[in-house]
């Protein structure tokens, strides 16, 4: 995986569909920490994540630098709202998809045993040869998590990864992700304040147009924090207030 590092993103102006999204963008992901982005739908959370992932080519370019001085390209893993499993590949072939796409051998002994180990970690032992269509939504998202881990990248970018599953499955997936991605530099886009408070080291709220990124809220305690923690609940009330203000700002702009 290599050494963990932080990321800084700077851009003079990011426009999308002719509208200024970020006037001056200056944002950091500290090394080994989970940074969460909250905000109303369409505010630009995903665009910021896509800029870092190198996927938002249509929105202009940003200057991304890493603490270790090397380029970021090729060192991030991406996990989206949908599981994005390929329906014609078995679960294990989906997990080793990255190797297949890069022209490396996905069937080698080492790759296979690593993939099996990861499927075991996410609780999918026995489903290696199943097609994704045979799996439930939660299981599919766990397979997607295993695929993300298989990439073994120091930076993980997650765009509402658990929003399509039911509440209990979501809590379990959050715990699983928190455990398996413990030491990495993570950016988590979410619309769920509880999720941000359980998993985030730093929580930013995005609002308005052009976007204003709030100062980080810094929850204390080890992730994943229990959902009933009093500190967490107090912060949740605070975040809800901040979010409804953000929603008004964004609607007014």
């Amino acid at each position: 995986m290599g050494k963990i590092f932080g990321i800084h993103i700077k851009a003079p102006r990011i426009a999308f569909d002719g509208q200024t999204l970020f006037e001056t963008l200056d944002f950091s992901l500290p090394a080994g920490q989970w940074t969460c982005l909250l905000g109303p739908s369409g505010v630009g959370k995903s665009t910021l994540l896509r800029l870092i992932a190198g996927l938002a080519t249509e929105a202009g370019s940003a200057c991304i630098s890493c603490d270790d001085g090397k380029p970021l390209s090729g060192r991030t893993a991406y996990m989206g709202q949908q599981d994005l499993l390929l329906p014609w590949l078995s679960v294990i072939d989906n997990v080793t998809l990255g190797r297949r796409l890069r022209g490396e051998d996905p069937k080698g002994h080492e790759a296979q045993s690593h993939a099996k180990q990861l499927l075991d970690a996410v609780g999918l032992t026995g489903y290696e040869q199943s097609l994704p269509s045979k799996l439930s939504g939660g299981m599919r998202q766990r397979a997607a998590l295993a695929r993300t881990l298989m990439e073994n990248r120091p930076v993980v970018l997650m765009d509402e990864p658990f929003s399509a599953v039911d509440a209990i499955t979501r809590l379990r997936l959050q715990e699983l992700a928190a455990e398996l991605l413990r030491d990495r530099t993570v950016l988590l886009v979410t619309h769920d304040p509880l999720e941000a408070l359980r998993l985030g080291d730093r929580i930013h709220v995005l609002s308005g147009r052009p976007v204003v990124i709030s100062d980080a809220l810094l929850p204390t305690g080890l992730r994943p924090r229990p959902a009933g923690d009093p500190d967490l609940l107090a912060n949740q009330a605070k975040l809800f207030r901040q979010l409804s203000a953000a929603m008004e700002d964004t609607a007014a702009a």
């Binding site: 991406y78 989206g80 390929l86 998809l97 990255g98 796409l101 022209g103 970018l157």
Partner: peptide, 25 residues
């Protein structure tokens, strides 16, 4: 599916590889 193309790009897949492994199937 655009998401699958995004995923493939973050996995450093070449255009040809994306065509062969994702777009054609």
């Amino acid at each position: 599916e655009p998401g699958q193309l995004d995923l493939a790009r973050t996995m450093n897949a070449s255009r040809w590889s994306i065509l062969r492994n994702i777009r054609i199937p």
